[in-house]
Design a protein around this nucleic acid. Structure first.
Lengths: 152, 152
DNA sequence: GGTGAAATTTTAGGTGC
DNA sequence: GCACCTAAAATTTCACC
C-alpha cells in the first residue's frame, strides 16, 4: 500500500471531518469525485481507514472523570493475561487497554461519572477480575488537548 | 440538555459508524428521518457530539510505536505550565496531553515510527521544551483494545 | 484520472395526530 | 413530540472515455 500526497490530504481531511461529502473532499484535494471516491474506498479496504466515529464530549453525558489505571498481575502466565484481557474488555468504562513496559503490566484508560463512581469501579468491577495483584490510579486533572489527527 | 433513550441509541450508532445515512439511523432507532435529523443536529449544536473523525490504523502509515510519557516540570508556576502546554501542542507526534495527579505533572500520548524515532523525539523535540525537569516513558508493547464507544 | 447520468440521500416545509 | 407526505437540492455511484 503506497500512500501518496493526495491520499495523505484525504486522510487529513477525513480525520478532521468524517462526514464531508465526496464532492467537498474532491474539491479540497483537486480531484474529481470519482477518483476521490476510488481512493477513499481503497484506503478503507486496505485497512488504512479502520472506521468513522462520532466523538462525544464525555462531560456532556456525565462522564466527568478520566483516570489512567496501571495494573500488575500476580502471575506472568498466558492464562492470567488472557483471562484478564478478556474480562477487562467487558467493562464498558475501560476505553483502552495496553500491555506496557515498566513495573506494571497493563495501562487502562477509564471513564467514570465522578471519583466516587471510579472508586466503586475499582473496588467492585476491576477488583473482581482474576489475577490482579495491584492497581495504581493516575487521575487526569485536566485534558489540555486530544488531537484527532495523526502526523502524516 | 436532556438525553433520552433515542438520543442514546443515536449516539451509540454514530460512535460506531459516523458515516451512516440519516435514513439508516432513523430506521435503527425507529424514528422517521426528520425527527432523527433534528435530534442529531441538536446533539451537535449543544456540543454533545463534538465532531466526526476517520480513524486511521497508525501501523498502516508507519507509526509503529506508541508511548505514554510522563513529564515533570522544574517549577510549579503558571508561566511554566502555559509555556509547556503551548509548546507541546505544536509537536505533531503528541496526540494527547493531560495534567495528572501523582508524582508527575503531565501525561503525554506519543506516536512514532519506531523506538529510534521516539528516542530522537524525546532528545530533540520534547527535550527542547522549556521547564521540563524529567521524562519517564512507558512503552506500549501491545494494544489489546481501543473502544470507540463511551458507556451511555 | 475525468465525464455525465441515474439512483439514492439529505434537507426543508406542510399537514394532522 | 412524532409520522407522513412532498419536493428541491445535493450526493453517491456507475458505466464509459
Amino acid at each position: 500500500m503506497s500512500i501518496d500526497k493526495k491520499d495523505q490530504e484525504l486522510l487529513a481531511h477525513l480525520q478532521a471531518n468524517a462526514r464531508s461529502s465526496i464532492a467537498q473532499l474532491a474539491n479540497k484535494v483537486n480531484l474529481s469525485d470519482t477518483p476521490c471516491l476510488r481512493r477513499i474506498k481503497k484506503l478503507e479496504s486496505t485497512g488504512v481507514i479502520s472506521g468513522y466515529h462520532a466523538t462525544i464530549e464525555p462531560k456532556r453525558i456525565g462522564l466527568n472523570v478520566l483516570v489512567y489505571a496501571f495494573v500488575r498481575l500476580n502471575q506472568n502466565s498466558v492464562t492470567a493475561a488472557n483471562a484478564f484481557e478478556e474480562q477487562v474488555e467487558k467493562l464498558q468504562h475501560v476505553q483502552e487497554c495496553a500491555v506496557v513496559s515498566g513495573s506494571y503490566d497493563y495501562l487502562l484508560k477509564v471513564v467514570a461519572t465522578d471519583l466516587e463512581a471510579y472508586e466503586h469501579f475499582v473496588k467492585y468491577k476491576l477488583g473482581s477480575i482474576d489475577y490482579i495483584a495491584n492497581i495504581e490510579s493516575t487521575v487526569v486533572l485536566k485534558q489540555t488537548f486530544n488531537k484527532k489527527q495523526l502526523p502524516l
